[in-house]
Design a protein around this nucleic acid. Structure first.
Lengths: 145, 145
DNA sequence: AATTAAATAAAAATCATTTCTATTTAACAC
DNA sequence: GTGTTAAATAGAAATGATTTTTATTTAATT
């Protein structure tokens, strides 16, 4: 596990610092989307003296290197980060437990064609985020959703 | 035109103020997505004394009433607003000229089914934003895109 | 162990957005 | 039209997330 991260960091010419590894470990353990401040609070249990800017900087660097990815939460204006996944822009987000799952999105090609037909321009990128309840939360129907 | 706006405002129990109408006229004229500050600058040519908070407040109220809608721009963290359109969450955004077009999205039902099959939970909402070049900008290939 | 460039802490700055309060104004009744 | 009232506004200040700055520390390499 740690070796994977180290290798990935080396490829990006990022030094392997305890804090950087800790951030990745937190994101890996949680498999939930977290804000910089949430991550910072978790880090402070291990590092008494860690600054919030350090967390921001690291998250940004890791996101640039595609080790983690950035998403939007619909009801907050902050960005959240998440461990690597195959399709960086297709998320299913559980609004109850905040778990993030990839969605198997074979419709995308069709969509792109449809858009090109409508717009007659060029598609460069997209943001697709689907919000709902995951299996478990749907059963429990937490939060009155 | 103005009557349409007045009627819509009345339905929402919002008073018909010159500034409120001006905001709607700007958004209608431009048919491009604009940030609060951009709108504010345009308003100041007509109203010397208009505060940015007034613009924010109005945009928020109008968005709540579905007279305008809010979208995300991928490379800025700000929200942008746009005149009413039929499908509030499906936008095609030209990264060159910032024009916003609706996309005729008949694939959505399929997508929802696909997600439900994968996740086995519940879909509550989604954000779909497609970025690219509109017909005109694609021809001109502005901005090196 | 010494060197060097990157990473960090801490404080301060920035920037978008929101809140607060006193004043103004639109809507409505007369 | 004039008066009344609740909503809208200006302007200043507050907020809150994020970024920048600078001096110090540390990881990587020799």
């Amino acid at each position: 596990m740690r070796n994977n991260f180290s290798l990935a960091l080396k490829k990006l010419n990022l030094k392997i610092t305890p804090k950087r590894l800790a951030i990745l470990e937190i994101l890996m353990k949680e498999s939930v989307f977290l804000g910089p401040e949430e991550i910072w609070k978790k880090l402070r249990t291990r590092f008494k003296k860690i600054g919030l800017p350090t967390v921001y900087r690291n998250l940004e660097e890791l996101a640039e290197g595609n080790i983690i990815s950035k998403i939007n939460h619909p009801n907050r204006q902050l960005y959240y980060y998440l461990c690597p996944n195959q399709s960086p822009h297709h998320h299913f987000i559980c609004l109850s437990c905040h778990k993030v799952e990839d969605i198997n999105f074979c419709i995308l090609k069709e969509l792109e064609e449809e858009v090109i037909n409508n717009i007659r321009g060029k598609v460069l990128s997209h943001i697709l985020q689907i919000n709902g309840l995951c299996k478990e939360c749907f059963k429990e129907r937490k939060n009155g959703l």
